[in-house]
Design a binder for these strands. Structure first.
Length: 714
RNA sequence: GGGCGAUUAGCUCAGUUGGUAGAGCAACCCGUUUACACCGGGAAGGUCAUAGGUUCGAGUCCUGUAUCGCCCACCA
């Protein structure tokens, strides 16, 4: 008899647009994205092994790009496979408030559209506008994640700046403060004159530029010549330093000179310090404690104090006419001219120089002395076996994929300096520190101290105006999303998380910070393995950028070729840690594959069904082959070889199933029963990679259960 | 300056412990319209960057070189 019930939709090519949204809705309604529902419905055993991941929270400013869709696809493959394999599987969504990034986007928007600056609105109003903006863009992000097919547990969604996460942030801050890890101190920090805030060492991008190096003397009377690319800073010099073994200058070491530098009085002490390179320039280093981190350290060692000569807007605070009040770049030229006029310049040469710029604003970093909050990574922590944060990070048993990232990570930790965590912007977690009116007392906590808390009565307390580096709250993500500081069941079950998957550009910013925070707060690693994907580039291998206009919108691609085709095209040919190239042509290739699968299903579903079960000569061998494929695919996924798993499935479905097995069925050497079985198992194995079309076909086979929770066949 | 990665068919890339080079796309020839033209069949295409070494045997391991790329870095 003929099965006439095959759906008419199979008579046409596969239509992803009509299919995908209803399928996602069906999944979401089932509640199976939430592991608790899976247990309640008997899909998952209550004592099954957990599998958990956090979604790297996209920036609240973000729209989805090809990097995000690759990330979502990889993670969704793991989540779906493990859920099908019977694990208690949890994947937590969220968004990142991305402090500086978001505030600057909104500020630019306000300036452009309404001509408003941050101080026109004030703190409260600006924050309200930012929150409004963030709400809108979070909704977009959620929609996009659904479009990619992410099987995220939306009931557990989190936001790095929501109330619960704020509670976690404040608690960690207090605890780190009490342990002496968070300290407030004066240091030369990275000041971004454009963004008007400090930034951490990691938020600096080095750019190579041409610069003129001047070799000159402060004055005629001064015996030593120095070399610098920044003569304008020399008004702040406190010393000149030479190497202790440099015979040329030993006679001057220890002497102090009171001189005049272009009309400004300077007191210069000659010191010996091993930091100085004898071979560079004249071998004499002008020490400017307030405007160079190196010089600050040298000065500290020799107990010298410098004067600040550049302000927060990058303008000169001292100097003669034409220098004072002028921006540094301009002042530099002017000082060079004045030195030339005074006959003090000995040499001028153009050299290549690395300039530090702020990652977000592009502003040229001005090292300035400031009182800021830091996390010290070299303080012994009694509650953690007297180990330092550095040690806790180094010994964390986290597997890196590919493993070369472990070396990169360790190298970074070994060179880590105190992490500056305070920012002079308004959007973010407010530093939970209060100062008494007279400045003599300090209180750490979310609220101003009350008398019960042992505060001194009658004092007026003001909260620190600064906010925290966005990575402080991101660092808590694996446990703050699971309910910490409350001791929740989620925390017990799902932490440490099983896997973290993210871009290789986040090794330091985020991955290292999560390991730091989790090791300190939880006393355990945040995840057992960290998997890194590379950059997604265009077909010519160029970075995706606004100025090149080479952006490919994954949502558009999904509509045009099908989300499954997009997912496959991003997985195949992409190894962990390596950059990948994307083109529409590649996506189109997998659209054809989706359609092939569609037509295979059409054939199988309309194949004549035998009255009773029958065996054909090729059946046994085919089933054995399929079992071995399933084992192979499982091993590939578990060993992070998604590109191989995807390729093998593609090859099997097209060149074994379609080309050979179906043809053999036509010849009568394969039973319909076996054919149907092969289709079902192929759909199951393909489901994590191509969830929409496989579910759609599965549903057309009149299955009671969703393919999404079908048992993984190994 | 330090570290890392890549180099395989025209293009994009596989090649998991060393055992006679693979796929997709493009191009070429032929065919088919009752699963699929978003198709089928066929043929073509590579001294695996380069020079050495280890081995019975190297795309795969070791050393050097070149080119490209990335990350880190307080030589002013």
């Amino acid at each position: 008899m003929n099965d006439t019930s095959i759906d008419d939709k199979f008579l046409k090519p596969y239509d992803p647009v009509a299919t995908e949204a209803p399928i996602y809705e069906m999944w979401e309604k089932s509640g199976f994205f939430n592991p608790d529902v899976c247990i309640k419905e008997g899909i998952t055993a209550p004592d099954a092994e957990p599998f958990s991941m956090v979604l790297p929270p996209p920036n609240a400013t973000g729209i989805l790009h090809l990097g995000s869709s690759l990330m979502c696809t990889i993670q969704d493959i793991y989540v779906r496979k493990n859920r099908m394999a019977g694990k208690r599987t949890l994947w937590i969504p969220g968004t990142d408030h991305a402090a500086i990034a978001t505030q600057s986007v909104v500020e630019k928007k306000l300036d452009k559209e309404e001509g408003l600056r941050r101080h026109d609105l004030g703190r409260e109003k600006l924050l309200a506008r930012i929150h409004e903006y963030v709400e809108g863009s979070r909704a977009t992000i959620q929609k996009q994640m659904r479009a990619i097919g992410c099987s995220l547990d939306w009931s557990r969604e989190a936001y790095t700046l929501d109330e619960k996460r704020n509670k976690a942030v404040n608690k960690v801050f207090k605890s780190m403060y009490d342990d002496g890890l968070i300290i407030r101190k004066h240091r030369v920090i990275n000041w971004d004159p454009k963004g008007q805030t400090t930034i951490s060492d990691d938020e600096i991008v080095h750019e190579e530029r041409d610069a003129v190096m001047y070799t000159f003397k402060y004055s005629k009377e001064f015996p030593l010549s120095i070399s610098t690319t920044r003569p304008e800073t020399k008004f702040g010099d406190a010393a000149v330093a030479v190497h202790p073994d440099d015979d040329r200058y030993q006679q001057y070491v220890g002497q102090t000179f009171n001189i005049t530098f272009l009309g400004e009085p300077l007191t210069i002490t000659v010191i010996a310090d091993k930091e100085v390179d004898k071979e560079f320039g004249t071998g004499v280093l002008g020490v400017t404690p307030c405007h160079s981190a190196t010089d600050y350290e040298i000065a500290e060692r020799h107990k010298l104090i410098g004067v600040q000569v550049i302000d927060e807007y990058g303008k000169m605070m001292v100097g003669p006419e034409g220098v004072k009040g002028v921006k540094t770049a301009e002042a530099r030229t002017k000082v060079a001219e004045l030195l030339k006029d005074a006959g003090l310049i000995e040499k001028e040469e153009t050299i290549k120089q690395h300039v530090s710029t702020a990652e977000r604003s592009g502003g040229i970093i001005e090292p300035l002395p400031k009182l800021q909050w830091f996390i010290d990574v070299d303080v012994k922590i009694p509650s953690r076996g007297n180990k330092t944060l550095k040690e806790l990070m180094l010994e964390a048993p986290v597997t890196f994929i590919p493993d070369r990232f472990r070396t990169i990570y360790e190298h970074w930790i070994n060179n880590l300096r105190p992490w500056c965590i305070s920012r002079q912007i308004w959007f973010g977690h407010r530093i939970p520190v209060w100062y008494s009116e007279d400045g003599a007392h300090l209180h750490v906590g979310a609220e101003a101290p009350t008398s019960e808390m042992g505060a001194i009565e009658g004092r007026h307390w003001t909260q620190d105006p600064d906010t925290l580096d966005t990575w402080f709250s991101s660092g808590l993500w694996t446990f703050s999303t699971l309910g910490w500081p409350d001791q929740t069941d989620d925390l017990t079950t799902y932490h440490p998380t099983t896997l973290l998957e993210t871009g290789s550009d986040l090794v330091f910013f985020w991955v290292a910070r999560m390991i730091l925070m989790s090791q300190y707060v939880m006393g355990e690693i945040p995840f057992k393995a960290a998997y890194f994907h590379g950059l997604v580039r265009d077909e010519k291998g160029r970075k995706i950028s606004k100025s090149l206009g080479n952006n490919i919108d994954p949502i558009d691609m999904g509509k045009k070729y099908g989300t499954d085709a997009l997912r496959m095209s991003q997985i195949i040919g992409t190894q962990p840690g390596a950059d990948s190239k994307m083109s529409e042509e590649k996506i189109r290739a997998y659209q054809k594959f989706a359609n092939k699968l569609w037509n295979i299903s059409r054939y199988v579903l309309s194949a004549e069904k035998p009255a009773s079960s029958e065996q054909k000569e090729n059946d046994a061998a085919l089933l054995e082959e399929l079992n071995s494929l399933a084992a192979d695919i499982t091993a590939d996924i578990d060993a992070f070889r998604l590109h191989l798993a995807g390729e093998k499935l593609y090859h099997y479905v097209w060149h074994r199933f379609a080309d050979i097995i179906i043809e053999d069925h036509k010849k009568g050497v394969v039973s319909t029963q076996t054919l149907t079985h092969i289709l079902e198992k192929s759909l199951t194995l393909l489901h994590p990679f191509m969830p929409f079309i496989t579910e759609e076909i599965w549903q057309s086979m009149h299955k009671k259960q969703l393919l999404m929770v079908e048992k993984w066949p190994v």
